[in-house]
Lab assay of single mutants.
Amino acid sequence: NCLEGLIFVITGVLESIERDEAKSLIERYGGKVTGNVSKKTNYLVMGRDSGQSKSDKAAALGTKIIDEDGLLNLI
């Protein structure tokens, strides 16, 4: 459970895995996936064609922004 207690938001199109697979992977390792960035969000996983508003909010809140490889490296 290397992601225990961590909260993730996924945005954009992921290249190597589907969004549902990424969500399942995060949950399997103890993390939680939500739909919107908040002060409780630990990581924003940004894929291709992701919206600017979520990354702006993450930056404003100090949320770590990672890509798909960054997510896989956490596991």
Score class of each variant (00 low, 15 high):
2 C>T: 07
17 I>P: 07
12 G>V: 03
44 L>A: 02
51 G>V: 13
37 V>I: 15
39 K>C: 07
73 N>E: 13
71 L>A: 01
41 T>K: 01
48 R>Y: 03
64 K>S: 10
25 L>N: 00
26 I>K: 00
70 G>W: 03
9 V>E: 05
5 G>C: 03
7 I>A: 10
58 A>K: 06
25 L>V: 05
24 S>G: 10
43 Y>H: 09
5 G>A: 00
8 F>N: 05
9 V>A: 12
22 A>I: 15
38 S>F: 01
40 K>C: 08
50 S>Q: 07
17 I>T: 08
75 I>V: 07
48 R>W: 02
19 R>C: 06
17 I>G: 06
24 S>L: 12
40 K>Y: 12
64 K>G: 04
19 R>V: 11
36 N>S: 14
53 S>H: 14
26 I>S: 03
15 E>I: 07
44 L>F: 04
60 A>C: 11
68 E>F: 13
21 E>C: 06
12 G>Q: 00
16 S>E: 09
29 Y>T: 02
60 A>F: 09
56 D>R: 13
31 G>D: 02
67 D>L: 04
51 G>R: 13
46 M>C: 13
18 E>K: 14
1 N>E: 06
41 T>W: 00
60 A>G: 10
17 I>H: 11
28 R>I: 04
62 G>N: 08
65 I>A: 04
56 D>I: 13
65 I>N: 03
75 I>D: 03
53 S>Q: 13
2 C>K: 10
14 L>H: 05
51 G>N: 15
53 S>V: 12
73 N>G: 08
38 S>N: 14
12 G>F: 00
59 A>M: 13
57 K>A: 14
46 M>E: 07
55 S>I: 15
40 K>H: 10
55 S>M: 15
73 N>V: 02
61 L>Q: 08
14 L>I: 04
39 K>G: 09
15 E>Q: 12
29 Y>N: 10
62 G>P: 04
4 E>C: 01
75 I>Q: 05
45 V>A: 02
49 D>V: 08
8 F>H: 02
71 L>D: 02
39 K>R: 12
61 L>C: 07
20 D>V: 08
33 V>A: 13
58 A>V: 09
21 E>V: 08
4 E>I: 03
29 Y>C: 13
68 E>H: 13
69 D>T: 14
52 Q>S: 14
58 A>I: 08
15 E>M: 09
45 V>W: 02
72 L>R: 12
35 G>F: 08
19 R>H: 11
24 S>Y: 10
25 L>W: 05
23 K>S: 06
50 S>H: 14
62 G>Y: 02
3 L>Y: 00
70 G>I: 04
25 L>F: 04
16 S>N: 13
23 K>F: 03
53 S>L: 14
39 K>W: 08
73 N>Y: 06
49 D>E: 11
15 E>G: 09
11 T>L: 05
38 S>K: 01
57 K>W: 08
37 V>E: 02
6 L>S: 07
18 E>S: 15
46 M>T: 12
71 L>F: 08
4 E>T: 10
62 G>E: 04
72 L>Q: 06
5 G>S: 03
71 L>E: 01
25 L>H: 00
33 V>D: 02
48 R>D: 06
29 Y>W: 04
67 D>Q: 06
16 S>Y: 07
44 L>H: 03
3 L>C: 03
60 A>L: 11
61 L>D: 09
74 L>Q: 01
48 R>T: 09
56 D>E: 12
37 V>S: 01
7 I>P: 03
3 L>T: 00
42 N>Y: 12
48 R>M: 06
15 E>R: 10
73 N>D: 12
3 L>R: 02
23 K>C: 10
53 S>G: 13
9 V>L: 03
21 E>H: 10
13 V>S: 14
39 K>M: 10
46 M>I: 11
72 L>A: 04
71 L>N: 01
23 K>P: 02
27 E>H: 08
23 K>N: 05
47 G>C: 07
45 V>S: 01
61 L>W: 12
56 D>P: 07
74 L>G: 03
18 E>V: 03
45 V>G: 02
16 S>A: 08
2 C>W: 05
64 K>Q: 10
4 E>M: 01
61 L>P: 08
55 S>L: 15
22 A>S: 02
23 K>Q: 11
74 L>P: 02
27 E>A: 06
13 V>W: 11
49 D>G: 14
61 L>K: 09
67 D>S: 09
7 I>M: 10
25 L>G: 00
59 A>N: 09
31 G>A: 02
7 I>S: 14
35 G>Q: 15
34 T>P: 00
7 I>Y: 12
31 G>Y: 00
37 V>M: 10
44 L>S: 01
60 A>E: 11
13 V>D: 15
22 A>N: 00
40 K>W: 07
12 G>R: 00
46 M>P: 00
75 I>G: 02
13 V>G: 11
65 I>R: 07
62 G>L: 01
47 G>D: 06
29 Y>S: 08
36 N>Q: 14
56 D>Y: 10
69 D>L: 10
74 L>S: 01
31 G>F: 01
58 A>F: 06
45 V>T: 01
4 E>V: 03
69 D>P: 10
23 K>L: 07
21 E>W: 05
16 S>K: 15
31 G>K: 00
49 D>K: 13
72 L>S: 04
58 A>W: 07
44 L>R: 02
29 Y>K: 06
58 A>G: 07
35 G>A: 14
12 G>K: 03
63 T>C: 14
36 N>K: 15
36 N>T: 14
71 L>Y: 00
7 I>D: 09
70 G>M: 06
37 V>C: 05
36 N>F: 06
48 R>G: 05
65 I>E: 02
59 A>R: 14
17 I>D: 04
45 V>N: 00
41 T>P: 02
74 L>W: 02
65 I>C: 08
38 S>G: 08
53 S>N: 12
7 I>R: 13
57 K>L: 12
49 D>M: 10
28 R>Y: 06
